[in-house]
């Protein structure tokens, strides 16, 4: 019996190297551990083994079965590993080839700058208030303390509608939102709004487009001051033009604010050292602002002895031109695909 066992193992060992494929594995399994394989046949002979040897022989047969299974399994793994490696090898690709192109859209720079302003002010509790682009002379001028014949109306050459001169117009300033916001606020309580939008003036050259975009801000409460205005504009300008931006107030005149200021920011190009863009002054005028004129408050139903507030308005096109380094305002409304498709990614925060 022992000789037989040794013989089977020796035969397997001599044969195992010729096993190359999974089919060979199947065959060799059948030959040794199949239904009528050597090891199976050997087990069948256990009946003829004397009782006192049965235990010992049984152990030897079991050991043989284990050895055989082990040898074959190890061979089988070797073969499968080789097959897998070959498959992996075959599947390997040129990872330097380009990825599949997904068509890329873009958002217009004016949309982007508008959203930037909106997000900032919404985060500070402002409501984005959108008014109509067709406006009455009353809302756009008269209720902003610009009665008919007022010399300051010259600054804005307005597009009036046909047969509606000094009556109905394409809004020349988003300041008209001040009137709309105050009048629509029926409880005449505090207001915090910004109004971004298109405005129109009879003016067209390299720095002026007859259509452009402004954003107006209005805060009304009982204790609002010029200091609050300045702090707010500092936050806004740093957000849009960079953290190093500084803000300067110069007294000015607007009929709908009193006191009024022009607001300069440090030149974004030279950082305030002086360059051609800022005419060597280090500052660029970007915005008009002030405390809402008492006449404006009372014309829209607010009591100027109780409420005061600030308002500001700025051209967003100029901000976009600053931010994205666009030299000519006409590019913004030219809609050349080579221009608009550049605005196709997330900007830095």
């Amino acid at each position: 019996m022992k000789e037989k066992i040794d013989g089977i193992l020796a035969e397997l060992k001599s044969e195992i190297d010729s096993v190359k494929t999974n089919q060979d594995v199947t065959n060799i399994k059948a030959k040794y551990v199949g239904k009528s394989g050597y090891v199976t046949e050997l087990s069948k002979l256990m009946g003829s083994v004397p009782n006192e040897e049965k235990k010992e022989v049984g152990q030897m047969v079991n050991a043989l079965r284990e050895s055989v299974n082990e040898l074959i399994a190890s061979k089988e793994k070797e073969i499968n590993d080789a097959i897998l490696n070959e498959k992996l090898e075959k599947e390997s690709i040129d990872i330097t080839l380009p990825g599949k192109k997904i068509k890329r859209g873009s958002l217009h720079p004016m949309t982007r700058i508008t959203e930037e302003f909106e997000d900032l002010f919404v985060s500070m509790g402002y409501t984005v208030f959108e008014g109509p682009e067709l406006e009455s002379d009353e809302n756009c001028f008269q209720k902003l303390n610009l009665p008919k014949g007022h010399p300051a109306r010259d600054a804005q050459d307005t597009f009036y509608l046909k047969d509606e001169v000094e009556n109905y117009l394409l809004r020349s300033q988003t300041s008209t939102a001040q009137v709309r916001a105050m009048e629509s606020n029926t409880d005449k309580g505090p207001i915090r709004i910004v109004c971004p939008g298109k405005v129109y003036r009879r003016d067209e050259d390299a720095t002026h487009s007859h259509q452009f975009m402004q954003i107006e801000g209005l805060v009304i409460d009982k204790n609002i001051s010029m200091a609050d205005l300045k702090g707010t504009l500092e936050v806004m300008m740093k957000r849009v033009l960079g953290e190093k931006t500084e803000v300067r107030f110069r007294p000015s005149y607007f009929p709908f604010t009193e006191p009024s200021v022009e607001v300069d920011v440090t030149c974004f190009k030279c950082g305030g050292k002086g360059c051609a863009l800022c005419k060597q002054t280090g500052w660029i005028e970007v915005l008009g602002a002030g405390m809402v004129h008492p006449n404006v408050l009372s014309m829209s139903g607010y009591d100027p002895s109780v409420y005061q507030g600030f308002a500001f308005g700025t051209g967003m096109d100029r901000m976009a031109m600053f931010k994205y380094a666009i030299p000519d305002i006409r590019t913004i409304y030219g809609n050349d695909i080579r221009f608009i498709e550049q605005f196709d990614r997330k900007d830095v925060d």
């Binding site: 959108e130 204790n223 010029m226 200091a227 702090g231 107030f249 110069r250």
Partner: peptide, 24 residues
């Protein structure tokens, strides 16, 4: 303000209640 110097005003943020801002 003009003669005092508008630019001497020191900016601060208005102390207003926290409310929800909205947009379209």
């Amino acid at each position: 303000g003009r003669i005092y110097g508008m630019d001497k005003i020191i900016g601060k943020l208005p102390s207003l209640p926290t409310i929800r801002g909205t947009y379209d």
